[in-house]
Design a protein around this nucleic acid. Structure first.
Lengths: 115, 115
DNA sequence: CGCCATATGTCGATTGGCTACCCATTGGCT
DNA sequence: AGCCAATGGGTAGCCAATCGACATATGGCG
């Protein structure tokens, strides 16, 4: 199925990787900033998500450098990831329009349509 | 925080209940229509979601009628549910704008996606 | 009669996310 | 010296929502 069902944390990871490659910690900071402090990505969520996205080919490894005996990876969005994010964004745009439309109807009749 | 993180199926249920009360099967049909046949809500998802949403006070029971020895419930969005959907819609609107902005940056430099 | 649409529901497995940990280093405050 | 915050990367176990398959019942069509 083409039904991808991205959840919010995962979608935000792809979003903040869209304009520039970043390493894990930077992704967390960026998501925090973008969401206005609302979405705090935990490391548990992030690294398992990155692992999953790597296997799905949605993100790739930009570079690896050894810092203090540790591997620091910088991740980037693959073209496949870009396509998925673009599709998902279109889907959301439609969902937003639909919700707006229906919420407007609801406001016209404050007590609902008596079935 | 009470970070609700609505998943897509749940959000679509609230969306199609926004303009009019509907019973379960009608919700499934409506979601299918709205999504252009893309999102097929399974009954497993729907009825457990409705149960959850009832307990959370986001949807209410509009009416109940007995048809063929069975209870047919018609659900409606509560004002609390309306507020949540409105908030969620605003959040999504910002997310869409953010994704658009970053995807535009990505298109300006096609070198990034090394994959 | 079999099959499909309508209609409501349960159950087990899977997925993804979350909390809570683990590790290391730099730097500032007391 | 002892501690905390920030930077940086990672695992384990538990939980909630979703998914797929099944169960059940009525009524219409061929």
């Amino acid at each position: 199925m083409t039904d991808h069902q991205l959840r919010e944390p995962t979608r935000l990871v792809l979003t903040v990787l869209a304009d520039a490659p970043r390493h894990g910690y930077a992704i967390i900071q960026e998501v925090l900033a973008v969401s206005g402090g609302r979405t705090r990505l935990s490391t548990g969520t992030l690294y398992t998500a990155l692992d999953r996205l790597l296997h799905q080919g949605l993100v790739g490894i930009e570079s690896e450098e050894v810092v203090g005996g540790r591997l620091r990876r910088t991740y980037s969005l693959t073209s496949q990831g870009q396509n998925l994010l673009a599709e998902e964004t279109e889907r959301l745009r439609r969902a937003v329009a639909e919700a707006d439309r229906r919420l407007a109807v609801a406001r016209l009749r404050p007590n609902g349509a008596t079935a």
